[in-house]
């Protein structure tokens, strides 16, 4: 198993955001976290990225426990819901950021960084946007920049928080297909959060349905829609 989450618990004040959640993700898998708002999807992603901390439970990535590893050393790529691009940097500088902040001894040369950035932008099909600023490109293009930026550091795990939430329907459909293809081509392990069940069924290898900080069911899209584990899942998948 690539990612092992065991009995994660976290509370915000009195409310439990994660309530004994356990989940495994295999290497190369594309897993969708599906659930209504407030079900703990985003919290789970932030916990995996190291931006939030659980009160109890354990997380291992590639067999290594990581709950005490600080976010900056986790090597996990996170694409934020609103992208969180650095607005005062060009697209190219955004993508280069993760490489440029590395300590000198394992930082690639300036030329190597430039090549890597060009390659990534090309792969994202935005090769000509390197010199633009985030406020000069469209929402779909920003999404690709955010993805390129996260992938630049070659993360072991890619997390996507509502990656298409801010885009209109047509752009969404195109990006879905493209993203899934990219995942397969690059051999990534990805977890993505959505509240749109069609999107989850369409893209994911497996779907995990969350309610109130717990997993209600994890299975293939086919199995989840044919054999919902309970009424909540049935209602939600409808």
């Amino acid at each position: 198993m690539m990612v092992e989450m065991r009995d994660l618990r976290k509370t915000f004040g009195a409310a439990a955001a994660l309530d004994g959640l356990s989940l495994s993700v295999g290497k190369g898998e594309f897993l969708a976290l599906l659930g209504p708002s407030g079900s703990g999807k985003t919290t789970l992603l932030r916990v995996l990225a190291g931006l939030e901390f659980v009160s109890s439970g354990s997380i291992a990535i590639g067999g290594r426990p990581i709950q005490d590893v600080p976010a900056r050393e986790r090597q996990i790529g996170l694409v934020f819901q609103h992208y969180a691009l650095f607005r005062h940097m060009t697209v190219a500088r955004n993508v280069a950021f993760g490489l440029e902040v590395r300590p000198k001894r394992n930082r690639p040369s300036a030329a190597a960084i430039r090549d890597r950035v060009a390659e990534l932008l090309e792969m994202m099909e935005i090769g000509d946007l390197g010199g633009r600023y985030p406020d000069q490109i469209s929402g779909g293009q920003r999404q690709r920049v955010a993805l390129a930026r996260a992938l630049a550091v070659e993360p072991a795990l890619l997390l996507l928080d509502e990656p298409f939430g801010a885009l209109d329907a047509k752009v969404r459909r195109n990006l879905r297909v493209w993203l899934r293809a990219l995942h397969d081509r690059m051999g990534l392990t990805s977890i993505f959060v959505t509240h749109d069940q069609a999107e989850a069924l369409d893209m994911a290898d497996r779907v995990a349905i969350l309610r109130a900080g717990r997993i209600e069911q994890v299975d293939t899209p086919d199995a989840v829609s044919r054999h919902p584990a309970n009424d909540f899942v049935r209602e939600f998948m409808r």
């Binding site: 990225a49 190291g50 931006l51 976010a71 900056r72 050393e73 986790r74 090597q75 996990i76 790529g77 996170l78 934020f80 609103h82 969180a84 691009l85 650095f86 607005r87 005062h88 940097m89 950021f97 993760g98 902040v101 590395r102 930026r149 996260a150 630049a152 550091v153």
Partner: peptide, 24 residues
């Protein structure tokens, strides 16, 4: 969000402040 993004990309505190926060 921008600071958190910088953090997940491996930046340390000073780098986050100088490269991300300060320009903003």
């Amino acid at each position: 969000a921008e600071e958190e993004a910088a953090l997940t990309l491996g930046a340390n505190g000073w780098q986050i402040f100088v490269r991300v926060t300060l320009p903003n």
